[in-house]
Amino acid sequence: MNLRKNIRLFIRVICTVLLFSFSASDIFAETAYDFRKKVIDRYEGEDSNSRIVMKLQKIIHSKKDGGIKVKAERERKIVQYRKAYGKDDKIVMFFLEPADVRGTGFLSYVYDDSEKDNDQWLYLPALKKIKRIASGDKSGSFMGSDFSFVDVSDIKIDEYKHKFLTDGDLKGLLKEKSVQSILKKKFGKDGFSKAKIWLTTGGMKVVESIPVDKKILKDNGYSRIISWIKPDNLIIEKTLYFGKNKRAFKVRETIKSEKIQGIWSFTEMNMENFKKKHRTIIKFDDTKYNLGVKDSYFTQRTLERGL
């Protein structure tokens, strides 16, 4: 009897422990939504100033090993100021080079509320006119680059459903023709093993984001976004983008990130559009945070007068 009692007690204790442990993991486990939100809400200073060098390159890959040859390159230099207003941001940027767009100014009020369209104005010095520009189509190219407006300002958390991907899920991705096609271009015929490694989690958290409805798909232009994120600093190390036709076509990679004034910052990244055989490299030089940038920087006056 005692033995039976002891066994029953043991089973009860085990069941209780198991029950509690499941509940605890359910309660304390971070969901992909929470994690992705943390990335979007990552502290980037009250304000910042950077000089941006944008290289727009027409490229071809070596079929053998994926090596890159730049066929043509254009360079744009931009100065940018950003200031946070709660969850909203105000950004002003000016083109310094090339000469034909020098003095062109771009002012944007980026709203966190996904129901609200961003306010955007463009100042063209040749026309001497400030023009409001539509922001409805976020899939459009950001200043002729391979980054779209969504890529530049990150996605809005509630516009997507998020889930973590495991190494097993990623292995499955390699069987998709479009993924295989771009990785074959990226790593070449001999680079299959490299491609397999590229598609592992590599110690990072991998989040798949899928638009919640067709409108978001249409507006943002992505049917699926897979992001590799370093859990310690919440920097997105690489992103694989799938177009409206559900095929992978674009890859973003962080080339360099560093801690500036205690804030993890991108200092160099590139976006390659395999469909267009084009890539954009963006370098952020001389980034500074918390400068006390005046509100008046983010007005039409600044757009017209310059900085």
Binding site: Q57, I59, H61, S62, K64, D65, G66, G67, I68, K69, V70, K71, A72, E73, G188
Partner: peptide, 11 residues
Amino acid sequence: EEFVAGNDYGT
């Protein structure tokens, strides 16, 4: 021969 993996050749 014009490609080197990981490097860009200038324009």
